[in-house]
Amino acid sequence: MATWGRATLVEGVRAGDRRALARAITLVENGNPLAYELVRDVYPETGKAYVIGMTGPPGVGKSSLVSALIRRVRSAGKTVGVISVDPSSPYTSGALLGDRIRLADHFLDPDVFIRSMGTRGHLGGLAETTLQAALILDAAGKDILFVETVGTGQSEVEIVGIADTVVLALMPGSGDSIQALKAGIMEIPDVIVVNKRDHPAAKTMVNEVRSILSLDAERDWSPPIVLTEAVQEEGIDELWGRIAEHRAYLDEDGRLEARRATNLAGEVFAVASARARSHLEHAVADDAELGRVLDEVKGRRLDPLSAVREILEKVFHVGDSDTNRPDTR
């Protein structure tokens, strides 16, 4: 059995060794300091993989879509990495949906690496663990990375923020899909897929999506809508073609590099915000004086913004001058 130190892990990741990748991502999940050193060492070799984010409400068939797309990508001789981001169990801190039955067809393919990830109470949250895991698989030489999330909330939006192309999966007749449309998330996707295209309400959902997209006439790229039946792999070639079209669009005029630069900056702020919040929560929990400030707010003896000022001054030594007051609009 290999003894994984910093040097052997770096060498193993660069070689695409599956055991090294598994160990490296476990270190990432657990917030082990060695993970930061590892990512720092391999970071100069990243930026070659094309990252596809797959998001959408639970139960719409995202894993089935990813599985079908993997088969399509592998038929072209490309290597694949998959990060499936799951909610963590409050009892075991593991990934609740770790079985990923639909992806099981690819487990024995040496050129496909699949990993389910949970939060495990990580200081930087899922945005940080996903970013680090993606960088590790990128450095390992994977051509295509799929990042799949559960849900379409703020945390999921942050997770797919590392993606070059974001695919939003919806399902006709699904209340969650309708809610996703109403929640104003249509600025997120680059490609929209309506799965279960044989459903009687499929065409209706396509029309609803199209009408919502028409409200944003100023958008340079208009997300195409693809009807699929993922389990039967119907419509998958068209879906992959639409993803390829978006990649070609990004390759024009340096859009891809600009998007990646924006995404990386956004991820830095997302991770910093998550860490700052975690630090703040721990500080308030451990400090009787800060706890008193919160009690004052609860008792309506101190207004919330005054409490924010006191807490920030004590925890982060941040003043409240006009030059750094947050925009509360």
Results as ranks from 00 to 15, higher is better:
E11T: 03
V13E: 00
R19N: 00
I25H: 03
I25G: 00
E37L: 12
P44W: 09
G47T: 10
Y50V: 09
Y50R: 13
G59Q: 14
L65P: 00
T79C: 06
V82A: 05
I83S: 06
P90M: 09
P90Y: 07
S93M: 08
G94L: 05
G118R: 03
G124E: 08
G125T: 09
A134Y: 05
Q154W: 04
I159F: 04
G161A: 08
V166P: 04
A169P: 05
G175F: 12
I178E: 13
Q179W: 10
V194K: 10
R197W: 04
R210N: 15
D216W: 13
D220N: 09
L227N: 01
L227V: 06
E229I: 11
A230N: 10
E233P: 00
I243H: 04
A244V: 12
E245R: 08
Y249A: 02
R255S: 02
R259K: 15
A272N: 08
H279N: 08
H282G: 13
A283V: 10
E296G: 03
R301T: 15
D303N: 08
P304S: 06
A307V: 01
E310W: 00
K314R: 14
V318K: 11
V318F: 07
D320H: 11
N324M: 13
P326Q: 10
R329I: 10
